[in-house]
Amino acid sequence: MLQQEVEVILMRQLASYLAMPIFVVDPSGNLLFYNEPAEALLGRPFDEAGEMPMAEWAIAFSPSDEEDRPLPPEALPLVNALRRRRPAHRTIRITGLDGISRRIETMAFPLVGQGGRLLGVAAIFWDLDSR
């Protein structure tokens, strides 16, 4: 692909200005971007982590439910929003790449462009441990 869709470019630019942690993937689930507030939760700057396929990020942060049972990728709101093309929400635990476990709420929503094109999914994280 020569260029990301303009809606995705604008989503990244918006996310880069917001103080809420935001994570953006493409229609195949590949991680495109997470913003600075998300870096604090995920334990690594995006510039270091870089873009990565879903199979990688879905396990990189060791997601689990609130009872610490590991969650398969299909149980994650981001993956659900991508596959079902509707918003998805869940409270989960993740372990950042800095080794710290955090309880977060995740709200994921599909990015649907003109003509019904699925452009990806954006997820907003809410750190429950620090609030």
Binding site: M1, L2, Q3, Q4, V6, I9, L10, R12, Q13, L14, S16, Y17
Partner: peptide, 21 residues
Amino acid sequence: ALGATRFPWRSDWTSGYAVSH
């Protein structure tokens, strides 16, 4: 350049690039 923290940046993250390159 709207919202870009630096401009120009990567071509794949630049509006209009695909029809201009």
